[in-house]
């Protein structure tokens, strides 16, 4: 092997190694997938008006979050809720809710929260609290909001949840925040004594990160 062939072979080996391992700064990154085959993940909503309280839930949760345990403030990802999965217990009310004046789930089938950054990060054992800044998108309107979140890491629990089919970690996120119905064009003309303007959203979702 002459020297030029050796240099070429060494360069190829180095490039292949870098590609296989990735940059050293991303070593602690872990991606969690929130598409839950068990359908446990859910978001609930409550509109508490003077004359009427409306509650419901949605279970069409999907999306991924990538966290870096050494740099949690750099967490990125998107959580999506399928708008057609929104459910209230009265059938007629559900039909109205999905209609054009309200959620318009046929035209806007996704409710999205895109994580921009984390602040006020506090870690206690495997549980962390933080304020998450992100873009909340609903019915074609996108607004930047700050939401509190409680994140619990369950190392090695994916195996138990999948009956041993997969090995890996679980991450549970809980968050409760309030948005305004009028901010997102959800029938802003509807009287607030019957349908509250404030929508309290509670998210309880678990993501899985299988070992590769």
């Amino acid at each position: 092997m002459n020297s030029s062939t050796f240099i070429l072979a060494s360069t190829r080996l180095l490039a292949a190694t870098l590609l296989a391992t990735g940059p050293a700064t991303h070593a602690a990154e872990q991606t969690f997938d929130f598409k839950d085959p068990k359908g446990v993940n859910n978001a609930t909503f409550k509109l508490d008006a003077v004359l009427e309280t409306i509650t419901g839930s949605a279970n069409g949760v999907s999306g991924t979050l990538t966290i870096d345990r050494e740099k949690p403030e750099a967490t990125k990802g998107v959580i999506t809720i399928a708008a057609p999965s929104l459910h209230v217990e009265n059938t007629a009310m559900k039909e109205h809710m999905h209609g054009k004046d309200w959620i318009d789930s046929a035209t806007h089938p996704e409710i999205k929260f895109t994580v921009n950054s984390l602040s006020d990060f506090k870690m206690t054992g495997d549980t962390a609290t933080a304020t998450v800044e992100g873009k909340f998108s609903l019915k074609g309107t996108e607004k930047t909001i700050n939401v509190p979140a409680k994140v619990t890491l369950l190392p090695g629990m994916l195996g138990k949840r999948s009956n041993g089919k997969l090995e890996g970690d679980l991450m549970v996120i809980r968050s409760t925040f309030t948005i305004k119905r009028s901010d997102y064009g959800i029938n802003p003309a509807a009287p607030t004594d019957k349908v509250a303007d404030d929508i309290e959203v509670s998210l309880a979702i678990a993501g899985a990160s299988p070992k590769k």
Binding site: T44, T91, L154
Partner: peptide
């Protein structure tokens, strides 16, 4: 105290994650 319901939420605790799964059964209230 609200409107009649055609479905009723059933809450089941997922023991591993501690999340309450919400499913609906068809029942008139």
């Amino acid at each position: 105290p609200g409107w009649s319901k055609n479905t009723v939420a059933v809450h089941t605790l997922d023991e591993i994650t501690g999340i309450e799964q919400i499913t609906y059964e068809k029942r008139f209230v």
